[in-house]
């Protein structure tokens, strides 16, 4: 018997659908960089989706969205990720939210692991502020994968902690330190 594909557990890759022409808006970072993005990509952020809905409900023209807590470099990464995932079903990310075994598709794995850890932390933090569940899931899983099996010294380097510290004198840490 041919092996069954366990497709239910894995997010399906983005499949292009016949769709309306892209609606492009400007997005401004906290340090004044102005980028452009497809509204469908921005809707992956619950925070930005609410703002966009507010404009649409009032029939106000949406020319520029301001993202006050994300700098330009990080915002560019956020928008690149959202552009790649703009066709995704948001229910997949929600379903993975509290799971331990998150499968990271190859494009995301490459995108996230090529980043220096500091940039990855900034990206996850931005995803948190903008409420982008899928990016939070994949980002956190990437950090966890990088940290697993590392020694204290390697973890210190990974998390950018400069100096060893003196543990409380009453403590003897744990057996697995």
């Amino acid at each position: 018997m041919a092996p069954k594909k366990n497709s239910a557990k894995r997010p399906q890759p983005s499949t292009p659908k016949p769709s309306a022409p892209a609606r492009i808006v400007k997005v401004q970072s906290s340090d004044g960089h102005i980028l452009q993005a497809d509204v469908r990509a921005l809707l992956l952020s619950s925070t930005l989706a609410a703002t966009i809905k507010g404009y649409d409900d009032e029939n106000k023209p949406l020319e520029k969205l301001e993202v006050n807590n994300v700098v330009g470099f990080t915002l560019k990464l956020v928008l690149e990720w959202c552009e790649k995932h703009k066709e995704d079903d948001p229910a997949i990310a929600q379903a993975e939210k509290d799971k331990k075994n998150i499968f990271i598709p190859s494009w995301d794995r490459h995108f996230l692991t090529k980043l220096p850890m500091g940039n990855l932390f900034d990206l996850i933090t931005a995803a948190y502020h903008l409420d982008i569940t899928g990016l939070i899931n994949y980002g956190c899983k990437t950090v966890a994968n990088s940290a697993k099996g590392k020694s204290t010294e390697e973890m210190r380097e990974l998390f950018g902690i400069p100096e060893p510290w003196e543990q409380p004198s009453t403590s003897t840490a744990t057996w697995d330190d």
Binding site: A147, K148, K150, I161
Partner: peptide, 14 residues
């Protein structure tokens, strides 16, 4: 998302 041993190691970091 870590295993418990990695959490114990992380606890030693800072």
């Amino acid at each position: 998302l870590l295993d418990f041993r990695s959490v114990l190691t992380l606890r030693q970091v800072c």
